[in-house]
Structures are given as structure tokens and as C-alpha cells.
Design a protein around this nucleic acid. Structure first.
Lengths: 217, 217
DNA sequence: CGACCGGGTGACCGGTCGGTAACATCCGTC
DNA sequence: GACGGATGTTACCGACCGGTCACCCGGTCG
């Protein structure tokens, strides 16, 4: 591309890079391609191209396509779970906790680059390692929330986790619904609405729920 | 395979079948394989094998792998959306509606054959037709629920749909969480718990929510 | 100045898998 | 009891793509 033949242009493509920098650049390129195309449709050639480099370079930094993908996936999973955990640990007011958790999902999904797709729309779920990683992340979020629910209601762990999983689903799905419609409702208002929904729902559990049994544990 | 050379076995494989029956059998086989392996890992050879038939037969009934997959996907999407619509239309008691919607998701996900994976865990989301189909289904569910929310609260359509999407996410995710743990909590109790959560959350909206605006539409 | 080496490249291989062409077989019909 | 068309089969093709081999630069150091 645009190599003006007359001048011996001191910078060639993106010129040579030290190992670390190249690696970072490759990860960035790979993430863009995987996000845009998904795992299967993404070609290693294209990732290399996007980094202005040829394919063997890619294989000097990563043993294979799968491993490259897994590295990116893990980063994103960790990002989300950390934020959810922070939302739980950062306060002891439960309404704030709910607000924080919903906000965590919204911010994660609203982040530049749409990297959330790696986590929530992976087309490699049938791979054991991927499924395991995604499950582990999801479980971490559910447990972080579920612990609080279990502690503050009379529900046993199993049921608390079930409700917690509902909370994560509520946040995730509504955030993904909102994303392409963010022009109509601001991030903060959306989070407020969902928080109100979730908080009223969950805060009623300690005493109000007059279901079949009120037996703790 | 096991063709005992001595006896001319009167029944060959599954013998010849009329077109309709063969087609149904192929769809069944394809669904099993797609559910178990996902789209990409599923091989046309394997689908044919499972139906006790050779590959060209498959191509006499379906123009290609994608179309076969789409046929199955559409069936499942329709199944879910119909049930959710029924839950909304079958009563005018809102709590019953919520219970019905949550139950619809649980039953769909709990159905034999795990066909819900085609809808919620498709590894072909990057295909335009698939994405469109899945989106349309999701939108149909969200709208069915959102209409009721909009009608019974002061919220405008946009916000009602946002909350509705949260409800679908809550139901879907919790049902998928529950599925491998159904030994611990019965389907009915799980649905009850989630319904309680969702109903308390949503039923507070008409009057309680003292948000920025209460303007209808 | 020349040899060494980290960084990079073009060309190629091999396996998998969707899809097809050509051939075989069964059965109802006249 | 031969015919014809629906039903099936075997064998094959070709494209795509992950992964690798052999080779090429260009700067730095003795």
C-alpha cells in the first residue's frame, strides 16, 4: 500500500516492531476481526493483514487460532466478572448493589469495540474450553450476586443462585436490547428503569414472599 | 456396517420411505445433530448417516446445509414466540401473564431434545438470515410483553419494550441456569420464584416509580 | 566489512466438508 | 414381464483455510 517509489520512505509498512508491541497489535487486530466476523468466519490471513503483517508472524506469537481466541475471550470475561464483583463488594446498600450490577452489564456491553460479542455471541460455544470459560464467567457473576441474595433473604443457596441468574439475564438482555436503541433512552435512565424493576422484585423476598415454604436452607 | 454377507436380510437399512416421511426423518436427524454439535461442527454426512441414508438423499430434500438449519431454527423460534403470545393473550390478569411468560421460557428450554439450543446457542449468528430470524423471534416476544407493559403502566413504548426485554432475559437465563440443576428445585417452584421476582418488579411501575417523568407516550 | 540474528515474507501443503455426477435398485403399471 | 420413474448409493470434486517451510532482509557488533 501507498509505497511512494521515489522516496525511500523511512517507515515501511508499520515497520518492524519489538515482540511485545507486535503481540499487542496482533491481539487488537484479532479482536476486531473476531468481533466483526465471529470465530469461524474470521481468517487468520485477515487478522494478519489487518495488523499489516503476514500470517507466519501471527504463529510466532500464538500457537493457533483457538488459543488466540481464548486469550481474547478470557480477557473480556474477566473484565465483566470483575466489574460485577466490584458492584457487590463496593457497598453494603443493596439497592446500590443492584444498580451497580445492572450498570456493570450496561457498561460492559456499551464498551467501544463491541467486545462483549466475544462473550455473549460466541460462535465457538461447542468448544469445550470456550464453553468452560464462558460458563465460569457466568457462574462467577451469578455467585457474586447470589451470595448477597442468600445472605439477605431466607432463601437457600440453590434458590438464591436461581434468582441471581435471573438478575444477570435481565441485565444482559436488556443492555443488548438497549444498545442499538441508545438514541431513545440514555444509559442512565435505562439503568434506572431496570434497577427499579430488579430492586423492587428482589427486595421483596425477605419477608413478603408468602410462597409454599418460607423455610430458610 | 454390519451387513451379514450370508443372509440377504429382507429389511435393508430403514428401507425405502415415501418423500414426506423421509423428509420428516431427515429433519429429526438434522435437529439432533445440530443440537448436539452446533452448525459448524455438524457434517452433512453425519446427518445422513443418522437417518440411515446417504448424503445425496439429503440434498434431494434440502437445497443446502444452511437451508436445512434455517428450517429447524424457524420452527423453534415460532414455537417459543407462540407460547409467549399465548401467555399474554390467554388472560387479562397481569400476574398470570407474568407467570405464563416465565413458564413459557422454562417449558421451551426444558423440552425434550434441547432444541432451544438452536435458538439461544446458535453458532451461526453471523449469518444474516439466522440473525434476522433470531432477532425477529426475540423482538416478537419482547413486543408481546411490552405491549402489555405499555398499556398498564404510564411508560412509553420505548421504555416498556426495554423492560420487556429485561423480562425475557430474566426468564431465558434463569431457565437455562435451572435446567442442569432441575434436581434441586422443581420446575414449578423455580417458575414461582422467578415470577415473584418479576411480578413484584413490574407491578410497581404504574404508580410507584417516581422517576424523571411519568408522562405516558 | 562481513557474519550473525531477530523480525518478516511468499508460496505451499493437506485435511475437511459441502456439494454433485453417474450409476444401481425397487415397485407400480400396462 | 418389461418399462419408467422415484428412491438410493458410491465415488468423486474443488474450495477453503489453518498451519508450516524455506528463504529474505536490515541493522549492529567485533
Amino acid at each position: 500500500m501507498h509505497v511512494s517509489r521515489s522516496a525511500p520512505a523511512p517507515v515501511r509498512r508499520s515497520s518492524r516492531l519489538p515482540r511485545g508491541a507486535r503481540r499487542a497489535q496482533l491481539l487488537q487486530a484479532a479482536q476486531e476481526v473476531f468481533v466483526a466476523q465471529g470465530y469461524h468466519a474470521a481468517a487468520m490471513d485477515e487478522i494478519a493483514d489487518r495488523a499489516g503483517v503476514s500470517k507466519p508472524v501471527l504463529y510466532q506469537h500464538f500457537p493457533g487460532k483457538r488459543e488466540l481466541y481464548l486469550a481474547l475471550l478470557e480477557e473480556q470475561v474477566t473484565l465483566l466478572t470483575d466489574r460485577v464483583r466490584e458492584a457487590m463488594e463496593g457497598t453494603d446498600d443493596n439497592r446500590t448493589r443492584v444498580n451497580g450490577a445492572v450498570g456493570a452489564y450496561f457498561d460492559f456491553i456499551n464498551a467501544d469495540g463491541a467486545a462483549f460479542r466475544l462473550v455473549f455471541e460466541s460462535d465457538l460455544r461447542n468448544d469445550d474450553a470456550v464453553r468452560e470459560l464462558a460458563d465460569r464467567g457466568h457462574r462467577a457473576c451469578v455467585e457474586a450476586i447470589g451470595e448477597v441474595i442468600a445472605a439477605d433473604t431466607g432463601l437457600d443457596r440453590e434458590r438464591a443462585l436461581l434468582l441471581a441468574s435471573g438478575m444477570t439475564g435481565l441485565s444482559e438482555t436488556s443492555a443488548r436490547w438497549w444498545l442499538p436503541r441508545k438514541g431513545s433512552v440514555s444509559r442512565d435512565e435505562a439503568v434506572s428503569l431496570l434497577t427499579a424493576l430488579a430492586w423492587r422484585g428482589i427486595s421483596g423476598f425477605p419477608r413478603l414472599e408468602g410462597g409454599a415454604e418460607g423455610a430458610p436452607r
